[in-house]
Structures are given as structure tokens and as C-alpha cells.
Amino acid sequence: MLPFVYEFHWTPFHVTFLLVFFTLFSMVAATLVLAFRRTVKNDSPEHIEHVRWHTDFADLPTALKACRHELRGDVKHRTCPNGFDCRTCTVHSQISSRAQHAPSLQNFEVYGFSMSPYRLYHRGHTWVQREDDGTFTVGIDDFGKKILGAVRSVELPPIGSRLYVNGSGMLVKRDDAEVRVLSPLEGEVIGHGTEKDEWYLKLRAENGDAATTHLLTADEVPNWILREMERLQASFATAGVGVTLADGGELAPNFHRHFPNADWDGVLGQMFLQA
């Protein structure tokens, strides 16, 4: 089907028709090649982690993407457009500069979960604590630990590896589910281990305090945990009925054992922000 082929005539109609057809065909092919090229070119771990989080975040329900300032009551309604990364968010910097909340100095309980004023919290249920030597310790928060329940094993990133904000931090395995715990910070892993059944990572972040502006502070925690509790209750609500008056309160001890047949893979995926 080329100009020198049978039945082709050098008429405006034939030329226009073939031109349009070949242009479209070339556009389809070129776009496909472009996608292939970008895929081959951008295969760095950072890009892969970025893409994984980007697609996961895009698939999260809208209610789950509420901006931290909506949770805190600074704005009536706002959906986060930055994948929970406030480091480059202009709205966050504007609101934060005018709304300063005094932190408490004691450990506090929120709906039965123990929280520390000296820790910063990530929406994927991890905490970050700045150490005196300038490094950061990262762990799973109390809410996360309680819903994870009996864990079979935890895969921690090797020392020397690099983590990215909202990229993979730890891989927690239960008998019935597997969940990636998101990294709250970007930096190099300089240590890891377990202490009193609590897994932790030690990170060295290049940007110091500036690297943590996207994390929730102690005064933001109560409202955030309230939302998380509501989500958890909705997850276990009877289909078609929703959350009822009988639901609510605090999590009972060994909460996960009361739902042996629940879709824990789905619950944990949702609570730890994964598609």
C-alpha cells in the first residue's frame, strides 16, 4: 500500500488519504516507542519507587487523600495533590506559617494509641524521631502495630541502601497478608534491628529538618487518628449497612484475632496506603 503499488494514482484524494493514514499510524507507533524509551531510560530505583507511590496514591479513594490541613481544621475541604509530600507544597508552607500549634511535652494517648510529642508521624503509619547525632530512627506507629497483629516476618532494607519518601520501607508478612510499610523519609539506611518486638530503621537524611516537613506533628495526630479509626471501622462494617452506633470506641486487645476470616490483605493494604 505504497505510492508505487497497484491502484495508486497521483490524485489529491489518494495522496491526502495516504498522508493522513500514514501520519496517524506513525503517531501511534511513535507514541508507543516514546513510552518504551522512557521506560528503558527511567529505570532507577528512585523513579520506580516514585511511580509505585504515584500509581498507588492515584488509586486511593478520595476521602483517604484528605490534606493534613483539612484534618487539622485549617481548611474546610482539600484533597492533597502532592501525594502527601508537603515539602514542595505552597499551600502547606502558607498555612503552616500562620498556624503554629504549641506541642505538648508528654506522651499522650489518642483513642487508646500511645503517641509521643517527640516523634513525627507519616500517613502510612510510621514514626520518625530525630536523634542527637542528627540521624533519624523510623518505626511503625502504635496504630500500625495493633492492626498488623501477629507478624510472621519483617524484611528490612539492607544497610547502605537508599530509601525514598513514600517508597518501600519495610516488608511485613503475616500468614494471610503481606504489606509494604512506606518509608517516611529519604535517606541512607545506616542501621536496623528489633527492640522489644519493635522494628526500627536508622536513617541518615541529607536535608536534616527540612526533610521532615511533610510529616505530621503531635498536634495533628489526634484528628488524623480519628479519621483512621473511622476508616478502620468502615472497613469492618457490615456490607450495605455501614458504620452503626454500636461501632466506635477504642480497639480491643488482640483486635485482629476477632476477625480471623476478614480480608486482611485488603484492610492492611488500605490502612498502609497501598493499591
Binding site: P61, G112, Q233, A234, S235, F236, A237, T238, A239, V241, T244, A246, D247, G248, G249, E250, L251, A252, F255, H258, F259, P260, N261, A262, D263, W264, G266, V267, Q270
Partner: peptide
Amino acid sequence: MSYAAQNEPADAPVRGTMR
């Protein structure tokens, strides 16, 4: 968004696990 097992009684586990 309901991950409770379909074969479990409609209300018992939900009430039983929360204070």
C-alpha cells in the same frame, strides 16, 4: 469498603471487638 468476612454474623464481631 467492607472487609469483614461475608459468612460471619452481621453484627457480632463488629460489636465484640470495639469498646
